[in-house]
């Protein structure tokens, strides 16, 4: 497939132009210096200068755009229910890292299976993923082990693509690969911003990708890990040891690109109220506690087992792949230094 070039000094203009027609989200540095996926409103002259496509790490994964931490399911006034579901609409996540893109694709499949979750799908299905690959992965990344980065590979099928477009940073410009029909259409609409890539550009990009992959420090044999989790009963004492360190804050799950558990609750003032859903975490003691007081996962060690086996065993059994995308956020965000990569190593060396 023909690749294109996008000059970095064209990015602002491209984004301004795209923002006029699309709901466009980009990594934008806020006034506190934190980079988050933020909507770039039409002709926003302030945020346009705060786009940071070369970010190394996002604390909150872009899943928050398609699966907000808190969302209203409906409102009610007295006995009347007022629907708040938003219709499907097109949006772009511009600058999403490969692991996070894979996380969203994983969640798409989860929310599509059996009963369809219309709130999630209306947000996610028409979302264009413009991926920026990682030239310099962090020490905590292990995407190459789970095949979610540092760059994605074109699947060979434009209907089942992992990305719509993928950008590789070549210094002053990006090499742009097309992954899907939607990506192809995007390029043709905004053709004036793109030029044809030369063979040299493609070779340079290949070298950058190769070096990025080689620079990753954590290497895990994920097939072996999944086999271990699926075939063996991991001894409970390993989880109990993790449980002793874990403070059960749920942070690792909130920042996980594939965690999708939620709670549903009501709020009411006088006759007016809302039913919401918000992120929940399986490590919380109340997560499985029934009204009678009975709790099948009362002990911390059992909850620790659930948290890791869900990703490495049950996700594999139901979705056909590891639920961990190797982003390393659980390790980075953990106050007591537990992370998926470490847990895997502990299990393998046991």
């Amino acid at each position: 497939m023909k690749s294109h070039l996008l000059r970095k000094d064209m990015i602002k203009e491209l984004c301004l132009s795209v923002s006029a027609k699309w709901e466009l989200y980009l990594p934008i540095e806020d006034l506190a210096g934190e980079i988050q996926f933020t909507r770039l409103n039409k002709r926003d002259k302030i945020l346009i200068d705060r786009i940071r496509l070369d970010y190394k790490y996002l604390t909150i994964p872009p899943k928050v755009i398609v699966f907000p931490q808190l969302e209203s399911l409906f409102e009610f006034r007295g006995t009347k229910i007022i629907e708040t579901l938003k219709p499907r609409h097109k949006k772009i996540l511009f600058g999403i890292h490969p692991c996070d893109a894979k996380g969203i694709l994983f969640m798409n499949n989860f929310f599509k299976r059996d009963f369809k979750d219309i709130y999630y799908l209306n947000r996610a299905l028409d979302t264009l993923l413009i991926v920026v690959g990682c030239n310099n992965p962090l020490d905590t990344c292990f995407c190459s082990s789970v095949k979610t980065g540092p760059f994605l590979t074109y699947s060979g099928d434009k209907e089942a693509a992992d990305f719509d477009l993928q950008l590789t940073d070549l210094g002053k410009q990006y090499l742009v690969e097309i992954g899907s029909k939607r990506g192809e259409e995007f390029i043709s609409i905004y053709a004036k911003f793109f030029t044809k890539a030369s063979r040299g550009d493609v070779i340079l990009a290949r070298a950058i990708k190769h070096n990025a992959e080689k620079s990753i420090n954590i290497n895990i044999d994920i097939k072996e890990v999944i086999k271990r989790f699926c075939e063996d009963d991991i001894p409970q004492h390993i989880y109990d040891r993790i449980a002793q360190r874990c403070i059960y804050c749920g942070g690792c799950l909130y920042v996980c690109p594939t965690c999708s558990c939620f709670n549903i609750f009501d709020e009411k003032i006088d006759k007016y109220g809302k039913r919401y859903r918000n992120w929940d975490a399986c490590v919380f003691e109340g997560y499985t506690r029934q009204a009678s007081g009975y709790n099948p996962r009362k002990e911390k060690g059992i909850r620790a087992a659930r948290r890791y086996e869900h990703k490495l065993k049950y996700d594999y059994l139901t979705m056909g792949k590891s639920g961990c995308v190797g982003c390393g956020r659980c390790l980075v965000s953990c106050p007591v230094n537990i992370g998926m990569s470490q847990v895997i190593q502990e299990v393998l060396s046991a």
């Binding site: 558990c261 709670n263 929940d280 499985t288 506690r289 029934q290």
Partner: peptide
């Protein structure tokens, strides 16, 4: 079991 959604999504 404790349930929230009833449709295989909330995880509880």
């Amino acid at each position: 079991r404790y349930m929230k959604c009833g449709i295989g999504k909330c995880g509880h």
